[in-house]
Design a protein around this nucleic acid. Sequence first.
RNA 1: GGGCAGGUGGUGGAAUGGCAGACACGGAAGACUCAAAAUCUUCUGCGGGUUACCCCCGCGUGAGGGUUCGACUCCCUCUCUGCCCACCA
Length: 862
Amino acid sequence: MPTHSAYDFAAVQKKWNEKWETLGLARAEDFSKKPKKYALVELPYPSAAGLHMGHCWNYTLFDAYSRFYRLRGYNVLYPMGWDSFGLPTYNHAVKVGRDPHEVSTENVQIFKRQLKELGLGFDWEREIDTSSPEYYRWTQWIFIQMYEHWYDSNFARRDGGIGQARPISDLPIPAEIKKAGLKAIKAYQDNFRLAFKAKMPVAWCPKCKTGLANEEVLGDNTHERCGTVVEERELEQWMLRITAYAERLLADLDTVDFPNGVKAAQRNWIGKKTGVNITYQIVTDKNEEVGSITCFTTRPDTNFGATFVVVAPENPVLKTIASYMDKETLLAVEEYKKKAQSKTKLEREAEGKKKTGVATGLYCLNQLTGTKMPLCVSDFVLMDFGTGAVVGVPGHDKRDFQFAEVMGLPVIRVVKNEDGDISEITSLSQVQEAKGTMINSGFLDGLDIHEATKVITDYLEEKGWGKKITMYKFHDWVFSRQHYWGEPTPMVYCEDCGWNPVPMKELPVTLPKLDDYKMGEDGSSPLEKATSWIAAKCPNCQKDAKRETDVMPNWAGSNWYYLRYLDPHNKEKLVDFNIAKYWMPLDIYYGGQEHVTLHLLYSRFVYKFLYDLGSVPGAEPYQMRRNHGIILGPDNRKMSKSWGNVVNPDQVVEKFGADAVRLYMMFIGPYDSVTPWSEKSVIGVARFVARLHKNLSSKIRMVKDASGEVGNGDTVGLGKLKNKIAYDVENLKFNTVVSSLMEFFNKNEKANWTEKNIEQFLILISPFTPYLAEELWESLGKTGSVHAQSLEIQEESGQGVEIVEIPVMVNGKVRARLSVSIDEQEQKVVDVAMTITEIKKFLPDGHKKVVYVPGKAVNFVG
RNA sequence: GGGCAGGUGGUGGAAUGGCAGACACGGAAGACUCAAAAUCUUCUGCGGGUUACCCCCGCGUGAGGGUUCGACUCCCUCUCUGCCCACCA
């Protein structure tokens, strides 16, 4: 029931939803001569629960944005699609015993209905669905391209940069490999392919029964989707060599307009560090040499203070020296290994304070000092960073100090603090990590630590003890999932020929329908039971072979979807190059903070790869990125079923009308804020919509009765309002768009409006309240849709003399106001200002100075 | 531990270095009504003065300093909150 007026918004919405369906108002035109604008919101994951408020918020803001730019004469592309592969749909389908294809199709229908009922004008002719074979054919194509390319980091690129993906056939093969035959050549090539298979320890979710990428495992060691504590398993997995693109992913961040936080997060995620790999010989207590260990360090300057070496329990070096360790020690190492693999966040935090470890009984030789450093094992050293081994400098690294304390290892000071302190280091608080000059360090003594780092690095390289190295924190991307609802990996395994890609003309490899979609109890994919689907011919020798049963992760389809909107029905190519050239890069990409290191980084990688292939026109897909905020529940907590504070979009649209909900989405706060839903505030904008309807309806009646002659045109500032809103929309300040509209209407509600004023006002509000504007446009007797009009915005310049009211201040305190022409002479303004009674009252007898800023302020200083 | 973003009324939030608190919610009073809802009108940062009224004065954007004729805005120090990453060598 509408509660605020006689405005029957439900009927109006129904009427226009039906009419708009056929008009194609949001159609974007390839190669149009109008300026293009490609605005993208992250495509949703369609779930049975329907849209949540966050979707409504994001999509409404950019619907308004798109409509506004269309009115301003832009060729706007604002598309929508479905990221429909993924675990939630699969899990839901299995739970209710149905085919995920059907469940997914139904969910899409729910979403589409809801989007339309909010008046969101997407270009539906470009709709895509990542789980449709026509779409994932190209996801598979990208995978095969990666398989058939390697990264030549010395290749001179056409844009002047260094490093490019090249066909695997261009990979130089060493002579001895060539001699060894085809199998050896293939094995060699496999080491360089951008998509390759490798045995990897992989996080395994026992609930979802699938392997996960590191990125899908949260800090507390749980699966981000279901919250289950993950285990670790070794599996043969497809990997994508994203690390090959690390430098370009870093460097090109400078060329795009992303928020600082996003750039910082990506840099941090890539985690580039330069340092030195130092190799130490491992010796027994009888100085028998039994092996060697390489440690990565960013602080070689402190190496004179090194007193021990610690390796991760998983470090393979331990196997090679196992025969020199006693049984007890080996058992202890095994314990640490298990612990390292199943630690929760709480356990890690507890151990952050107290470290434990075990000494192997072996030693590493510090060539600098000639001392024997005990070789220890501890789980505070991580296998997946650096070399999985650390040289311990307890005097100048807090973790090393804690470890030394527990293990009773010596602490040597090699850096003099800035305050000159050179006392013995006996407590954690004395451990100085960042500043100082070298002491007790032979030829380094007296050098600043940064200078010392350079000197020692060169020295170590010269001696052959160490090697300068650049390290990255992130890893190649595990691209296999052991479940059903994803893109089949288009690879076939032949006993004789090994892995080969499915020929292009046979794509897509479609996901087979099954009788039973449940996971096997051992965690095997239901696809493994699809024997007739698995059976394939080897693309190379035509013998019987088997399909890959692992599917791709849910990021696979969403990595490149924005390209398919450009050319969604192309059967020959992923996207036509010239169409891509017209639309790319995206003008703005609006999405969630949670995607900045996953989707946003990986999709940049995929785009760069496609750029190397010559399939797309530029090196970066997103010219501008903005992150959306979060709408909390009315109780200021994150909306969640468990709190019972979820606000349902359907219900609020029914209660307040789509226009009011849209306006509230704009009005709720800055586009990137975290702010609670407040039904009280919805009432405010609903009142405004009702007032607009009532008041403008009667104005329209008056104008029509008097044949357009009644208005005397005393509307104040419609031109200024247009400029203000244009500025606000450009800067995504949607909340002040609404307040400006309210302010204008409050001022002019009772004025007489000319027909022209009403017309212009309706066009102006149409992006924000599309139904109301269209309805009133019709009752004004206008032909065509209000959304197909153009909005004239006058530039500020050339308007003649502008009068502004400026504050007149005495000693910085406002005492009066004064209306002046913006280009009035200073002396004249000051003279007038001095005659104001208020000013005379406060002006000291002999004021020293007057500051006049034209159009801004006058300030008398005493 | 690192990174990023913030701190403005009772609430959500406005403010290219130039009138702090726009706009809205909530609240108060009044109009309409048998009454209520809805709607409309006026007031609403804090403290004080004059309080018959117009008004007048002081204080105020997390704290402290700095730059400036002038600072919510720029700089420094500190503090608190939120988010992200984190035994990253």
